[in-house]
Design a protein around this nucleic acid. Structure first.
Lengths: 205, 205, 205, 205
DNA sequence: CATGAATGAGTTTTCATTCAT
DNA sequence: TATGAATGAAAACTCATTCAT
């Protein structure tokens, strides 16, 4: 009815200026590190902000919600992956050579962004991923499946469901990555080539 | 503030009667379902209690904490897995036959407890796992690695690090499972055998 | 990828036990006082909890959200008002006597719950009120309007829209209440009767 | 993190040009609309800025704080009201005629600024109003009270406290306004005259 | 004088855990 | 041993305010 005490004193704030888009990038970078280390639900936003070197509130200036941030991150990296794996792919090569090229690209992408691979694979079906994120996942799977189908038609690969072959290849790559991860993220040429050979022999007719 | 007459009977506390040990199991069952679906941090204890059909407080009668519950669950299933995979294993068979046997057992265990596989694989290095849980993981890995080493020594498998071979085999199995899950069909004999063959060819010299 | 520090230590908590329904009542009481004093948006939930003598979290055990609390409060008091104004109303009396009776009841209700009247009137169209709350408002208006229509038909009141007459009467009552509020909530018999007479003369033919 | 090339042109800061004083007025206009619709605490400054078509920071170029803005707005309109109600008031007329004139002026002011009336009436004792704002309120009340006292002395009005009579008249006016608002029609002559007559009969001896 | 990203305290809400019954 | 209301610290999110440009 009458006078209620006004809030204590709305606090000032030191300022920082960053180059265009830098804040967003910093947040995405921190999110990748923390999400892959501790999981989505295991990562509090303030921790994320601290790691990104920004204030908690700034997160929400760039992303609608924590969930939206996770989706943006997911889509960003799925797209980057799609590009790294298939951008300007040399389709004129023989199937075996194409496979080699793809394997190399996958490895290169992993080496450049070791956390990304782990995160993408582990959070495939997380409840917080939206339609668009799931669509991105499919977009990456499509060319792989197409390639496998073609090679299978040419009787180079086993007459198994293309998706099964893809799943197996993916599994082998993931196994190799896990092995590398256990060895402190070192993925040397030798292992890479060996795993590629394993994979090819797993699939080939 | 007072227009509803207070209820005449003070409602005696309902008490649920359960067979011995059943409550604990109901909790573990609910935990498995929820943890594998939503993750550890994504699963509130009250929800867990509801799914288990017990009161929230009852959880703490059976487990020290949520973390302790997760570890108990993890250890329970790692041990079950160890037993299912290697209990009374026919070590007298040929390596190829042993591999076949193992593959079959892995599949059988997966079919019997599909969620377990998913959960165990995904939460390998989670922060909430204690020493004992990690020890359980190693205990499962040991016989597999030993088998691979032996077969490799006999020049049946490629001369690669045993851990890499194991990781690859594991990856293929996981790929197969994912494939089955994605296609919404039971892991049938055909796919199972095909994947086994792929796996063997991946590893063999 | 590896061990993230588990949360600091999830804090214990002293307990309190209250009679059935007491907590809810305490919350509603505190909410009435604070909402009418500082408005809905001007009242932080922790303050509300403190005033109610409960923990912040307890609010959410009894109400879905702050908004739901406001609606529950609103509906509670609108219903109480309906009952106080019209419960067992002596419809056999003359119109003038009925008006007197109603005026007395309105005053009695105000005297018993001074804050309620103010709050109900001021927050009539607040954005946070739901369907049911608005329906409650209408339910209170209906008998008043019906009474006015009847008296107007008997040529006791001016031939004006019933809703206008009701609005005017309501306005006078509110004016009286504001006057009383300014005088430290004292609403003495004299003022009450005088205002009643004013109101009747405002409406009568 | 880096697959999009940074934009070629660094985008020069857009600057809005407005006629002198227009920005301040745009802010006040937006504030009136939002404060009367959602209340002071329910209106975020960024929303206000958006509605006013200015940047958030610009608000603080024209007003010390949100609270200061509310007070400026309040005072602005209380003064406007004072002027509209009593500026050059024809004090030579008979009391009844003066009352008619006042009623007309009140209605005219309401019609010209419907939101103002609502806001002024509802936020009379809000905690964020400062001394000066409250003084403005009193300044509007003074001539009304004086007029009522005079008329009462001349035995034209009931021998009641002047403040009660004023409160009643105010209540009737508000009731009329609410009625018009609820019926979604303009305050027409007919209703206006009828309410005036009601009000006079409520107060007159 | 204008801008709007950045800030961090404050707000709403959740949830692991306790304990009187 | 089971219950579930109560707790309060921490989570997600908001917003008044500042300041580099």
């Amino acid at each position: 009815m009458s006078d209620a005490p006004s809030p204590p004193a709305p606090a000032p704030a030191p300022r920082k200026k960053r180059a265009e888009g830098t804040t967003r990038e910093a947040i995405l970078k921190a999110a990748l590190e923390l999400f892959s280390e501790r999981g989505f639900h295991g990562t509090p936003v303030p921790l994320l902000a601290e790691k990104a070197g920004v204030a908690t509130g700034s997160i929400y200036r760039h992303f609608e919600s924590k969930e939206a941030l996770a989706n943006a991150l997911y889509q960003h990296w799925r797209n980057a992956q799609l590009n790294a794996w298939f951008g300007g792919f040399p389709v004129h090569l023989s199937e075996r050579a194409q496979f080699h090229e793809l394997w190399r690209r996958m490895a290169a992408f992993y080496k450049a962004n070791p956390l990304v691979f782990v995160w993408l694979e582990q959070h495939n079906h997380a409840a917080y991923l939206d339609e668009e994120s799931l669509a991105c996942t499919k977009r990456v799977l499509r060319p792989t499946t197409a390639f496998v189908k073609l090679a299978r038609e040419k009787h180079l690969l086993k007459p198994l469901p293309a998706k099964l072959l893809v799943a197996i290849a993916d599994g082998i790559f993931m196994g190799m990555v896990r092995f590398a991860t256990a060895q402190h993220f070192e993925l040397d040429e030798e292992v890479l080539d060996a795993a590629e050979q394993c994979c090819w022999e797993a699939m080939r007719k």
